[in-house]
Design a protein around this nucleic acid. Structure first.
Lengths: 221, 221
DNA sequence: CCAAAAGTGTTGCACCTACACCCATGT
DNA sequence: ACATGGGTGTAGGTGCAACACTTTTGG
């Protein structure tokens, strides 16, 4: 910041977001993410991450939320900066991408898709089976997935994929979908029960069998 | 990336680096970082992180190295992107800062400072006792320090502060300086001896007492 | 009463910490 | 010889994985 600005008007600043959610499949929930079909060159017709250009009067987080809403009509329940990609050759003309990653509560996916102005050219893909993406977005999505799987190990972030109240089994199934492996129910319970950020409620989910206590994520912890 | 570029020529892209090194003090090594005195408004005369503007034809990592060299004449031995700061009010006119953090081998600090074109307005400060900084650089430096202390816990990154070959005691003293607490020599040894990235050599450092085996950091592991 | 999910208890292993102890060297 | 840092051994504690077991519901 001690050098005067030069000819850097040529650098465009984009903001993109890798947003994950769960969608039910025959063999349990699957981790999915929405992609947008490009309507312009370059890479016209290819799938790309939702995003847009940073507005000069807008914070970075706000830009991520806004461009995500504009392209997919989705509003994230968790949002965190991932990385800034800026290799000179990542796009035909110089553009850096400040990339966010996000989670969307599974109960809001279809609600948000049902609104009348739901974009046409958005489609959900299995996070582990993505098509070829425009620019360096394939590499970016892979990194976001790695970060998500990593962070699930040492935080209660996975609750961001569920409604306000949920059973421990539902939460465990989220972990299993994210991590791609089964977890021991009893050990999982003990691990999360002592976590402060998870508080038990007095409600129970009644189903085919013994009712399960509902828990709530404590955002302020 | 699906929206056309608008008036974002007004957004300037800066790159700054928080670079750490060790400097000896009476009570053991101290973790220090170099700051640059601002020679222009705004915040003229205040201390700031070394940095500069991103060149349109330059990768982000390269920009971090270049601006660091231009302002401090230092070349990092480890460099990693930290975070991109872009709050609208972080500077008088809109500027985002792609911030890197870096380590400098302690044996290179004075060597690099001794070259003839060493900048005048650079000074080293104790990482735990920084002056008030320009812009949001105080918060940034704090975050970089947190990241360094965090990462030291689960990687052998601290070797980036030492010469190619070093004894385990020297490495332990680095950890102690970074973390700010004493570590048990025997447990430290066992922890790092089984780490793959640390390979023993056949050389020994001879001193006042029993010679200590030299180790080398295995970059390819 | 049975099936199945909710929830508890228990045991063993891996790892980390603290600290006692031996080893090799310069003076 | 002895002081000092280099290096090894070991016992206790913590936390997690595995899995046996009890509880509570719907049918």
């Amino acid at each position: 910041m001690t050098v005067e600005a030069g000819e850097n008007d040529a650098i465009r600043v984009g903001v993109s977001t890798v947003i994950f959610s769960l969608r039910s499949a025959p063999d349990g929930d699957r981790l999915m993410l929405p992609l947008v079909r490009r309507t312009r060159e370059p890479h016209l017709g290819m799938w790309a991450l939702p995003g847009g250009w940073l507005d000069p009067a807008e914070d970075l987080d706000a830009a991520a939320s806004r461009t995500l809403a504009e392209t997919t009509a989705l509003a994230p329940s968790y949002l965190e900066q991932l990385y800034t990609f800026g290799a000179v050759d990542r796009a035909p003309s110089r553009a850096i991408a400040i990339v966010y990653w996000a989670l969307l509560r599974s109960d809001l996916v279809d609600a948000q898709r049902a609104v009348e102005d739901a974009p046409e050219n958005v489609e959900w893909f299995d996070a582990d089976d993505l098509p070829e993406l425009a620019f360096d977005h394939g590499r970016i999505a892979e990194y976001a997935l790695w970060r998500l799987r990593n962070k699930v190990g040492y935080s209660t972030i996975a609750a961001g994929l569920l409604p306000d109240e949920f059973t421990l089994t539902e939460l465990r199934e989220v972990y299993e979908a994210v991590l791609g492996r089964r977890l021991d129910p009893s050990n999982f319970r003990r691990l999360l029960e002592g976590s402060d950020e998870l508080v038990p409620t007095e409600s129970f989910r009644t189903g085919k069998h013994r009712p399960a206590r509902l828990y709530r994520y404590n955002g302020s912890a």
